[in-house]
Design a protein around this nucleic acid. Structure first.
Length: 247
DNA sequence: TGGCATGTTGGCGA
DNA sequence: CTCGCCAACATGCC
């Protein structure tokens, strides 16, 4: 990861909680725990970005819907700046979010819920997880069930596995559950690979042009079928008739 | 122009 | 109890 390459081994010289932040942790506690410490590792946990420091403390950042990281330029932080981290070498990492919803945590609790790309999320795990009446897309989005999958990737995964997003989880046959388990890894790994190649320096913002069904501009799936859209739970679901509905 | 967007939470109703 | 749906957040993008 790019942040890891740029920042690992560097000392955090200054931490500023900015005006727009609604901190769950007091700025004083954050400063005390992290200022002057060396950043050892940057990694992802579910939908959180984690920065680990050499004294064992971990800074957890959740971007929510619109949070964004960028390299700070100029002197004055923007109106929606939440957190500014000054590293040795002059690199200034800025977290901003106009919705002010991005979360800043100190030493986030470990979770028993497996990340979608973890070893624990194997076919047996998915078979057990799908023993519920919840519709499959809602289940994929449930961070208490499995971590790291959002609306767009849920649509991509279900297309890849040829399962309708409106299928009842416990009606999906075993061979299809296996296909789902495979699709989860494939879609997420492909996305990481694609983004790495297309935008190796990206630290914020998003890249979605490669999504094959969850894309308002696309009319047809790779199989040439019309992409249908349905609003559900305040969000849009993109799917095609190539996906089998189990009810 | 305006519809739409990698998310979470809590409350309500079926 | 389980599940689905809704609003709130209020800017940037094509």
């Amino acid at each position: 990861m790019h942040l890891q390459r740029r920042l690992a081994g560097k000392k955090l010289q200054r931490l500023q909680v900015l005006k727009a932040a609604k901190p769950a942790v007091s700025p004083a506690r954050l400063k005390k725990a992290l200022e002057g410490r060396k950043l050892t590792k940057v990694y992802r946990e579910g939908k959180e970005l984690r920065l680990a420091f050499d004294n064992g403390h971990i800074l957890g950042l959740h971007m929510m819907l619109r949070g964004k990281l960028e390299w700070m330029e100029g002197e004055k932080p923007p109106a929606y700046g939440l957190l500014l981290l000054d590293f040795e070498g002059g690199q200034r990492l800025l977290l901003q979010d106009y919705q002010r919803k991005a979360r800043i945590e100190l030493d986030p609790e470990g979770s028993e819920v497996p990340d979608a790309l973890s070893k624990a999320a194997n076919t047996a795990f998915w078979k057990k997880l799908l023993q519920t009446k919840a519709t499959i897309k809602n289940l994929l989005l449930d961070q208490q069930a499995v971590r790291g999958i959002g609306s767009a990737y849920a649509d991509e995964i279900l297309y890849q596995a040829r399962i309708s997003p409106f299928s009842v989880s416990n009606k999906i046959p075993p061979d299809k559950v296996k296909a789902l388990a495979t699709a989860v890894k494939k879609v997420l790994k492909n996305a990481i690979q694609h983004i790495r190649k297309a935008a190796p320096d990206i630290i914020g913002g998003e890249l979605r042009d490669f999504l094959v069904v969850h894309n308002a501009r696309k009319k047809k799936s790779p199989g040439g079928k019309a992409i249908k859209v349905r609003s559900t739970g305040g969000r849009k679901t993109y799917y095609t008739q190539e996906q089998q509905l189990y009810t």
